[in-house]
Design a protein around this nucleic acid. Sequence first.
DNA 1: TTACTTGCAAATCGTTTGCGATATA
DNA 2: TATATCGCAAACGATTTGCAAGTAA
Lengths: 140, 140
Amino acid sequence: MCKERNLRMTRQRQGILEELRKDNNHPSADELFGRVRKQMPRISLGTVYRNLEILSELGEIQTIQMAGSLKRFDGVAENHYHIRCVNCDRLIDAPVQVSKALENAVQVRTDFRILGHQVEFTGICPECRRRTPGAFPDNA
Amino acid sequence: MCKERNLRMTRQRQGILEELRKDNNHPSADELFGRVRKQMPRISLGTVYRNLEILSELGEIQTIQMAGSLKRFDGVAENHYHIRCVNCDRLIDAPVQVSKALENAVQVRTDFRILGHQVEFTGICPECRRRTPGAFPDNA
DNA sequence: TTACTTGCAAATCGTTTGCGATATA
DNA sequence: TATATCGCAAACGATTTGCAAGTAA
């Protein structure tokens, strides 16, 4: 990291990045704040936001904002699709390949210069289906 | 509309829906408020929000929330993909087919019950490329 | 007539920002 | 030492909500 910008690897920035990469769930800023705070009780929420913004600009992480109203953050920077549980808001990686062909298809049909694309599936996660059987029948 | 709920077709609800369907750009609540207000100067922003929420629940319109921090609304209820200009935030429909096969691919690989999916392409719109030549070279 | 809906204004809440203090390179 | 970054708290802005008055069915 630290391209042309004069960035410093502070204890806080380090801790936030490590915590985000520890497992690939996709916490909100506030959730991440809660986790990082266990290591650094005096860190502030503003610092978490500031660093997530910087890390995202650097391409070290990615910011996810789709169906939900909260931003979610992903320690894996490469594009991949997500599935969101509409019941519990859990967000996981979707086990399907990213399609560059889709971008090309749009590119040739418009005068846009296409830079990327995001996909989010919505559904009911296994836990929610199990927890409340009958609430989410398989045939919608 | 008005399934099992006891909904009334008020002047305001009617006007909001008509205005949203007049052309298929994808206004924010506030933009739509501005337009509807020309017909009904006393309508309030809260009313616009309340009705957009209801119309969305009824499946009459859809709420779009992806890369941007503002919700955007779409008078066309059927699923379709969008392209967002990262420079001016313009949002237009993407001229590619919705792929149910994508949903199936995820369905068979997870224990989620997949309900739908959203796709948003990001890029630079023709107007922005033209307006600031050189700023957005074709080879990224 | 009834209860859904409105306009208004205040509240909410995720996120951003100003500032003086701190700590990294 | 210079200045990027921090912690704190206040500001911001989109959205939501409580309430009394208005109105569709």
